[in-house]
């Protein structure tokens, strides 16, 4: 797919649980769309969004698709800048080393820098 304009830096801030609403899935779909158009993408998990990274999800039991499995395929879509806010992880007793996918744990200050360096920011 050809890109007509120079790519934009787009930061997605995902702050919702994976199965409690459609927001986490919507965020992933937006990330995949932006990736298809070869934009420069940052994906940031904050607050309850870090629950998307919980290991060993088996959402078949609630007839849902495994969101963490889809997240694990993001490098294939050239989405490699994936972050999780350390404070949000520790507040939920999540160990950055034992998540479903590899993410860079980062501070709120680092997220502030990502926002400043972005053309567009989506939060959902």
């Amino acid at each position: 797919m050809s890109t007509l304009q120079s790519p934009k830096t787009i930061t997605f801030i995902s702050r919702s649980t994976p199965y409690g609403s459609g927001r986490a899935k919507a965020c992933l779909d937006m990330v995949l769309s932006a990736a298809a158009f070869e934009q420069k993408i940052n994906l940031v998990f904050m607050d309850d969004g870090v629950w998307q990274l919980q290991a060993a999800q088996k959402p078949k039991s609630i007839d849902a698709k495994d969101l963490s499995a889809a997240l694990s395929a993001l490098p294939l879509f050239d989405v490699n800048n994936i972050f999780a806010e350390s404070k949000s992880l520790s507040a939920r007793d999540l160990d950055p080393a034992s998540l479903a996918i590899g993410v860079k744990a980062c501070s709120a200050e680092a997220i502030a820098v990502l926002i400043r360096e972005s053309d567009v920011v989506y939060q959902l």
């Binding site: 702050r15 997220i111 400043r116």
Partner: peptide, 12 residues
């Protein structure tokens, strides 16, 4: 909702 708290953490 923790939206404002999250916003305040990353607003500069």
């Amino acid at each position: 909702d923790d939206a404002l708290a999250a916003c305040l953490r990353v607003a500069t």
